Amino acid sequence: MITRAIEILLVEDNPGDARLTLEAFKEGKVINNVTVVRDGVEAMAYLRRQQPYSEAKHPDIILLDLNLPRKDGREVLAEIKSDEHLRQIPVVVLTTSTAEEDIARAYSSHANCYISKPVDLEQFLRVASSIESFWLNFVKLPHGAVDV
């Protein structure tokens, strides 16, 4: 039984996709706080609690787009998984790319899951619901196990 809000970091540069994701998780059954950052540089600053994110909460899960400005999501994933303070955070790649090389590279970089964003609204909401159902209801997340 979840007794606290699940902290979700959404790394997404597309405002429409970010809004859809926020709405989908707001409608969910699990209490959550979703923080949105718009690029890879912001994501790493947030995770490392650098300004302006010095008070950032340690996320329980990261939803990561691959095609980001300033620092690509592939680089962000590699940095997260090579950092002893961050590597335990599950990373769900949520991206428009269906390229086999992106899928293989994400898993080689230790992504925990790879999901291609559907373009249809109803399918997108189903994907968000599936993420919530699996990652926030069934999986035991290492909240607070490592504090940066």
Rank of each mutant, 00 (worst) to 15 (best):
L22P: 01
D17C: 06
A99L: 14
P90D: 00
P59L: 07
E12Y: 02
I8G: 02
T96I: 09
F124D: 04
R70P: 06
E12T: 01
I80N: 00
R4G: 13
V11T: 05
R87L: 13
D17A: 06
Y53W: 15
R49A: 11
V37P: 02
I61N: 03
E75H: 06
V92Y: 03
M1S: 15
E100K: 09
L10E: 01
K81T: 06
V34N: 00
V41T: 13
I61R: 02
E7N: 01
N112G: 02
R48Y: 12
V92C: 05
G73L: 04
L63T: 04
M1C: 13
K71E: 15
E42K: 07
R126P: 08
A145G: 07
K81S: 05
D39P: 02
A99R: 14
I131C: 04
R70V: 12
V41E: 14
A18G: 06
D83I: 07
A45Q: 14
R4W: 14
G28R: 05
N32K: 07
A43E: 03
R49V: 08
A111H: 02
Y114W: 13
R38T: 15
E75P: 11
A99Y: 12
S97N: 04
A111Y: 03
R70N: 14
S97W: 04
L22N: 06
F134W: 15
I2C: 13
R4F: 15
V41S: 09
I115M: 08
I61L: 07
F25P: 02
